[in-house]
């Protein structure tokens, strides 16, 4: 008897998947490895050492990177909180307020930051702030980040809200809860996984942004990506690899977090 054919299997797909993983990870892994290089030459392997990590925190460039890191994280947390609040309100409007005029246009507007090419948003923001006489600096970075974080926060929040049937809120209102109580006591607790993933996504997107930040940051203000970019323009130095590896670690922690939250959200229901 012939062996039954596995219809899901295509020759070579496994190999391509491994290739894909290899392509995605090889540069990152190599940089992570070389960040532990003892040698001052970035290409020769001189043995394992943590000296570039020490350099990041205590070296001559340490204050610059520390300030940039503080800026980056402050902006990312602030922008992600604001974007999450705005996106949650928008998701309630889109998913729970029936039909109203301008609803379709609103959906397009929320997604607009994803559609406009980043370079266009970047230069347009710069020109806008200069035109209205708004001094570029931390505040302009913060405002620009909120805008492009909104759609990233909106996607998981809205998806979650769609998957929570409105019968729960109806039941709450049937049991004498006002609309606000129905939102606060029933919808909001059920939305926690979506809101958290929205927040995490917005946070990481803000933390990642280079291009828009680079245009609206103003003189002397740096975030980690702009500081790294400025440094890399003069050549890749080992301390940059150490910082990159640290940031890589932050990203991995965040994906893992959102992964766990996503799973918790699934099993709860």
């Amino acid at each position: 008897m012939a062996k039954p054919v596995d219809l899901r299997r295509f020759t070579g797909f496994r190999a391509i998947t491994w290739l894909c993983l290899f392509v995605l990870y090889a540069p990152l892994v190599i940089v992570a490895i070389y960040s532990f290089n003892d040698s001052t030459s970035i290409t020769r392997w001189g043995g394992f050492s943590l000296k570039w990590y020490v350099d990041v925190f205590t070296g001559p460039e340490a204050p610059k990177f520390r300030d940039a890191a503080i800026n980056s994280f402050t902006i990312a947390i602030g922008a992600a909180i604001c974007a999450t609040l705005i996106a949650t309100a928008a998701a309630v409007a889109m998913n729970r307020a029936g039909r109203f005029r301008g609803k379709t246009a609103s959906l397009a507007l929320i997604n607009l930051p994803l559609m406009v090419p980043e370079i266009v948003t970047a230069v347009a923001s710069l020109v806008f702030f200069i035109t209205i006489g708004f001094k570029t600096g931390l505040l302009t970075i913060f405002l620009a980040h909120i805008v492009f974080c909104i759609p990233f926060a909106y996607l998981p929040i809205s998806a979650r809200m769609q998957s929570v049937p409105d019968m729960y809120e109806q039941a709450a209102m049937d049991l004498y809860a006002t609309p606000w109580e129905a939102f606060r006591l029933v919808l909001l607790p059920l939305m926690v996984p979506g809101i958290l993933s929205g927040f995490l996504l917005a946070f990481i997107i803000s933390l990642d942004d280079f291009l828009i930040t680079n245009f609206v940051k103003g003189a002397g203000v740096e975030t980690l990506p702009t500081a790294i970019f400025g440094s890399v323009k003069q050549g890749i130095k080992p301390n940059i690899m150490a910082i990159s590896t640290l940031l890589l670690g932050v990203s991995v922690v965040f994906v893992t977090l959102s992964w766990i939250i996503g799973r918790a959200g699934q099993t709860k229901r």
């Binding site: 049937p165 019968m167 729960y168 109806q170 039941a171 709450a172 209102m173 049937d174 049991l175 004498y176 809860a177 006002t178 609309p179 129905a182 006591l185 029933v186 607790p189 059920l190 709860k268 229901r269």
Partner: peptide
């Protein structure tokens, strides 16, 4: 509005609040 009507509903899919205990569900109203 629904929250001011002295009627209560047993929903087809029950609509029990999944994040509350049975007791919390029952005392909600």
């Amino acid at each position: 509005p629904p929250h001011k009507r002295e009627v209560n509903t047993v929903f087809q899919q029950y609509a029990l609040f999944p994040h509350m205990t049975v007791s919390q569900n029952t005392s909600f109203g």
